[in-house]
């Protein structure tokens, strides 16, 4: 009886998130706090990078969520285009600003980290460039939503934009790679030759990642609830006008 699609009904979604959102929000704050405190104060300094390295506990989770948020928007857009569930479209809309902010956090923490390490706030490194481009895609997506009055038209157009944008975002990533081999280290968690990062770092880092994931989830749920209410309000106003 209970299928995932039930939550695509706005009423059901509101009822469920009534109790789910506070739990997720509290868990997000607690886990992120634990992760950050653990990472900042209870890990050894890196022998080369000193305590600077600890910004990794914000930088990496934020960068990860910046990409995951776009992927989530892509999935939600597909669900909207194929199954026409309104909650899905609204969730995609709610995720965009969160993803954009995560991208900015990733870029800023990267700059703060890069300054002492590479001696520059900004370099046209492929990864940095790709993130900047991702931010541009977020801006376009958000601007598209805010430019359209009719919510269903907006949902359709932004969903197509998200689909096409995803393809071009991936292409841009490869283009950036091709265009300049960079300064940025490889993926910090890759299991390539030897473990690159000690468990003393990995454990708090994973904690932070879970925490950021929960923050994202909480914000998206809250945002989606706002969007649902806004649509409800629009519908009520329209109903008044009709009557």
């Amino acid at each position: 009886m209970s299928s995932l699609w039930e939550y695509a009904n706005p009423l059901k979604f509101m009822r469920t998130t009534d109790w789910l959102l506070p739990i997720v929000a509290v868990a997000a704050v607690v886990i992120t706090t634990i992760g950050l405190v653990w990472g900042f104060f209870f890990t050894p300094d890196d022998f080369r990078q000193g305590s600077t390295v600890k910004i990794v506990f914000i930088h990496v989770p934020a960068a990860m969520m910046a990409i995951n948020a776009w992927v989530m928007m892509l999935v939600a857009s597909l669900v909207w285009l194929i199954r026409r569930h309104h909650v899905s479209a609204l969730a995609a809309r709610a995720a965009a600003p969160v993803g954009a902010v995560m991208t900015v956090i990733g870029l800023i923490t990267g700059a703060v980290w890069g300054q002492p390490m590479w001696g520059t706030w900004w370099a046209w490194d492929p990864r940095l460039t790709a993130f900047l481009i991702l931010f541009l895609f977020y801006l376009g997506y958000i601007a598209m939503w805010s430019a359209i009055d009719d919510p269903d038209t907006g949902a359709d157009l932004t969903a197509v934009l998200c689909l096409v944008g995803s393809v071009f975002a991936v292409l841009s990533r490869y283009a950036a790679n091709f265009w300049n081999q960079g300064l940025h280290q490889g993926a910090s968690l890759s299991v390539a030759p030897g473990t690159r990062m000690d468990w003393a770092y990995k454990a708090p880092l994973y904690t932070c990642m879970v925490g950021f994931g929960l923050i994202f989830l909480a914000l998206v749920l809250a945002g989606t609830r706002t969007e649902i209410r806004a649509r409800r309000m629009k519908a009520l106003v329209a109903r008044e006008r009709m009557a």
Binding site: P10, L11, M14, H85, H86, A235, R239, M242, A243
Partner: peptide, 13 residues
Amino acid sequence: LPDPSSGFDEAFL
């Protein structure tokens, strides 16, 4: 007008 007591359905109306 759709019945308001049916509440919050898919179309928000």
